[in-house]
Each structure stands twice: as C-alpha cells, then as structure tokens.
Write a protein that binds this DNA or RNA. Structure first.
Lengths: 306, 306
DNA sequence: CAGCGTCATCGGTTTTCTCGATCAAAATCT
DNA sequence: AGATTTTGATCGAGAAAACCGATGACGCTG
C-alpha cells in the first residue's frame, strides 16, 4: 500500500503556496510556524523530493515539482472536502455555505429579488456571492473556489454541468425621438445601420447581442473606441444619444432605464433572447441542492420578468 | 477550516465496501479488525451520519449515503495517490508500477515485441497488463484502476487524453483459391458481396472493419449467428472456407496466419487503416512518462509493421 | 441451546502531532 | 561594519491519535 500524504501536510503546502510565508501560512492553518515547518519537512522526506528551493535566499521559492504538487494537493484537498460535504449535504439539505458566482448582467437585477426568496425558503443556507465575467467564474469553478455559477448558457465551462432556468429576452433601448421609436417591436435587421453600443469585451452579453443581430464578434469594433463597463453606463450612453443598445429584459424589468426617458422596445424575432442557467462541477457533492436552487430560480425569474 | 476525513479512514471505508467484511477489509489494510471498526465508527461520528445500516442483521449493508461516500472516498484516495505519484515520477522517470490496458486485437501481436524493448529502455519500469475490450478498459481507466490504455483511436473514453502512435492497415484474408486471390489489392467494394466474418460484438475491430467497408454496425448481423471470439479463431474460420475477413496488418505481421494457407491481400483505399494510440486521464501524475512511452511505441509499431 | 462467526468495546502501548523556546542565517537598519 | 530584525529550522516535552490484543454482545446455525 502506498504511503499517502496527510491532509494536514497538504494544507500546509497549499497555505504556504498562497502566502509564500511560513509564519502567515501557519497562522492560516491555525498552527505554529514550527509545526508547519516540520510538517513540510516531513512531507518532503516522505516524498523524498525537494518542494522548496531552500538555496534561494530569503524568499519562499517552490521547485517546479513543488508547484505541481501544490496544484495536485489543492485538488486532493478538494476531493477530501467533497466527502465531508456530501455527508453534510445529506444530513441537512441546503445547509452549509455555498459559493456562487454571478455575471454582472444578471446579478444586480436578479439577486435583489432572489435573496429574500431564498432566505425564506432555505433559512439555513449561507450564500457567498462573487460577481465577475463568465471566463473568470468558469476558472474559479473548475479550481474549486466557487461551487455554483449563475450565468448565460451555453457557457464554455469545460466539463461543467448546466441547467437552464429562464429565457431572458432582448430589449432595444433607443434615445427619445429616435426614428425607430414608433415601432411596436424592432427587428434585428433594423439595427444593422444603427450605431450599436455594447459592453466592453469579456462580457458575454456583448457577444450574445452581436450574435442576435447576426454579427460576428469583432465584426463591429467599437468604432469610437468606447465600450461601456456596465449596463448602467451603457444606458447613460444611449440616453446621451450616442447610439442604441440591447438590454436584457431582466435589467429593464428591474428598472435600469427608469428616469432616463429611453424608449424600450422588444427585439423581434425567434431567437431574440438568451438562456440563463446554473452551472456546477459534475460530481459536486451537493448537486441535489443545486437542482433545488435551480427550480427556485425558475420561479424567481418568471416573477422578475413579469 | 473544515474537518477532513483521514486517508486512513477512507481506506477502511473503500476496503470494507470491496470485501463487505470487517475482518477481511482489515486484513487488506494491514490492521486489526478492531482498528478498522474503530476507524469507521470515528468516521461516522466525525461526519455525523450513518454509513452502515447496522440494523440489517448479519451482513455489512451500506446506507445510500454510505455508498456515495465510498465512491467519493475512492476518488479522494486516488487524488491523494496522484500527489505521491507525481513526486515519485519526478524523482525517477519510468520508475514505479504502471497499469496498462490493451485491447485483444493489439496486445498479443504487439506486446511480445514491445515488452523486451521497454525492459531495455526502462529497466525500472514495472508494467502490469490487462487485456479487455475498449469499453471495459475505458471504465477501468476512469475509475483509476488502470493508468494507461493501448487501443484503437478514436475511443469514447470520456475526458481521456489520447495520442496516436501508429496506423495499422487492414489486410483481407481469403481462403486459398478464392476468386479474389489473384488481385494485388482488394477494394472494399469487392467485399460487399462476400460473407464477411467478424469478431463478436464489443470488439472495436468489428465496428472498424464494418466502417471501412462502408457498412453500419448492425447492418451486417452475423447472418449465421457465428462471430469469432478472437482473431485466432477468426483466422481458423476463414481457413475452413466460411468466408473472408479483415485482419490488422499488425496481427498478420506477427504471423497470425502462418501455416493456414490463407491468401493475404492489403485492403485498397485511402482510409483502409485504423489508428492505434495511447489514452490516459488528463492530469494524470505521470503524463510525461506516458508520452515517452508513446514515442517508444511509435518506433516499435514501425518495426512490427515491417 | 451450544457453538461459531462477526462486529463493537476497552485498556494499554506506541506513534504522531503540536507547542514553546531556541538557534542560525539572511536581510535590514544605524 | 556592526547591531537588529526577520525568517525558517531544530529541539525537548506534553498531548492526541492510532493501533493492538483481549474481551464482550449479538445473531445465526446446527
């Protein structure tokens, strides 16, 4: 039988990798520096390898193998945690802390509605939130720093399991008095000749808006070099007559354009929406919780979209 | 900080799941029965759950959660092993034991050549072999019971990383005096009217042979209910005039048809071959070794195919 | 009902883990 | 340069955990 590294030692290892400082790493592990030092030395002795380059002056320097081991240690710890988490989840559903990532074009408009509903439904649920772009969230999901993502599907989170929860329609936002303001609905083709304002690169809404207009990403290169950093600034830009844009109905329903005088018209056409959904690691210990959360989200989204 | 299960406890858990007997499980873990029993109780206490259904009379019965935890424990142990293995692999490349799976239409013809070459090149390598069908091997790869597969690509080992090592051409095997025996090469179309003998279902060579003849699996349903269980029996069947077949060049080069009087002609056409390759789990601790092995295989295959 | 097989429990021993204190070396300050 | 501080390694002692052998409890079997 192989000699396995102890979870403790792995904790020391990854803590050291994160702080690059024995004392602080020890503090993070709630042990003394001597304990952490001895633990790491024991690990090196057990594996019969050098994890740290102790010749390298003052600072903590990992060997190439050391960095590899840090990575593997992290995943090993995560899989150990999955065992206890699965047990906890079975003992009391929706119990422990849940780290959820949300994209900025959903979060501010759905969460204010979602959170109270969840507090009522699952009083013991502790929901930690992080707002970031799809790519960033996907990275954090795959590296076990997030448990659950709320974003637009399909997302290229390799290997993730996803579940759709709602269709979010696109709304065309026009400055007051715009030539299209008279229409009930606006077909995507009518936007081809308009100056279409978009979020800056990295926001999935940008690509989805372009796609629904039949354009490729990069096709339309922010002619004036101005892209908005949030839906709120985007709305302001439209209001100052710089152009038109597409907003998610969710944001409109949450009142993003209130008081701006903008003209809001649904985008016409069959595919004039994007899919919102949850994504998580397959084999995650609490998939049952996630599915329950998803069905709650379906309800909340329906309400939020009127 | 979460309380993690100890690797020891997880070992006890999976050992018990495998033997369903405390005494034998303890023996497998090289501890006494009392130790294993106490360890499992401690685990149940730590996780505050019931893993075993102790009301269930005589035999060891797991709760549903218990079975889930066994599974998660297995993967957690595997990821811990990956840490030590990565260290060992870095210390001495091609060092430790390597569990390789091979399909039956490659193994018997390539391994006799491969093994001596590997022994020379990597004297410290300990290669454990298992011969089985692609599906079985893929299952064992994904459940960490095998490290490396030698098979025909593409294989549907979900999530596996693969590397091609050779093209193995198809050879048409005809009974002596067959009407096609005069040809230099035989086009796939000429086989459409022949009685094509194949391996039984489950062997990938069967599907590949059908595909290269432009037939779908199931198209040709072993009309007489007879399918061979190995290439050797297949050769015997052709020799007794029951029909014709396709053999991998590798098998022919290894002399599978020697002494049978069979007429052997290359199959003509651009796609008249299949790809042999290695497959392994991505993030496996010894991918460097696997790649080195792959390049050795390229050489051995070239030689084996003349 | 006696005997056997199986798992849980108990006391004692060995091993491992951890702490506080101390040391040596490098970095920083004076 | 010399003193001081910072940082990681080391040491001895105490605490905790793992393990073993023996024993107990319970159900199954003959």
């Amino acid at each position: 039988m192989t000699l396995l590294p102890s979870p403790q030692q792995l904790r020391y290892l990854v803590a050291l990798a994160e702080s690059r400082h024995f004392g602080r790493a020890a503090q993070a592990c709630s042990v003394t520096q001597s304990t952490l030092s001895a633990g790491l030395l024991a690990l090196e002795r057990q594996l019969d390898t050098h994890i740290l380059d102790r010749a390298a002056g003052r600072h903590v320097v990992f060997t190439p193998l050391g960095l590899d081991l840090v990575d593997r240690g992290r995943t090993a710890l995560a899989s150990l945690e999955a065992v206890t988490e699965a047990a906890m989840a079975a003992r009391e559903p929706m119990g422990g802390p849940l780290r959820m990532g949300v994209i900025p074009t959903i979060g501010p408009f759905l969460l204010p509605r979602l959170m109270p509903a969840l507090r009522d439904a699952f009083p013991r649920l502790k929901l930690y939130l992080r707002e970031d772009t799809t790519a960033q969230l996907a990275d954090r999901l795959s590296t076990n720093r997030l448990d659950l993502l709320l974003l637009a599907l399909p997302c290229d989170c390799s290997g993730a399991e996803a579940m759709p929860v709602a269709r979010d329609g696109f709304i065309v936002a026009l400055p007051p008095g715009h030539r299209l303001a008279g229409e009930e609905q606006i077909p995507a083709s009518a936007l081809a000749t308009e100056r279409l304002l978009l979020l800056e690169d990295g926001h999935c809404l940008r690509d989805q808006a372009l796609a629904v207009c039949g354009l490729l990403a990069g096709d339309r290169g922010d002619q004036d070099g101005f892209a908005a950093t949030s839906l709120h600034t985007l709305v302001q830009m439209v209001a100052s007559g710089l152009g038109v844009t597409l907003l998610p109905r969710l944001a409109v329903a949450a009142g993003i354009a209130q008081g701006t005088g903008l003209v809001l018209r649904p985008l016409a056409g069959a595919g004039a929406w994007r899919t919102l959904g949850l994504a998580w690691r397959p084999n995650a210990p609490r998939t049952a919780d996630y599915r329950a959360l998803a069905s709650h989200l379906v309800e909340t989204c329906r309400e939020a979209l009127q």
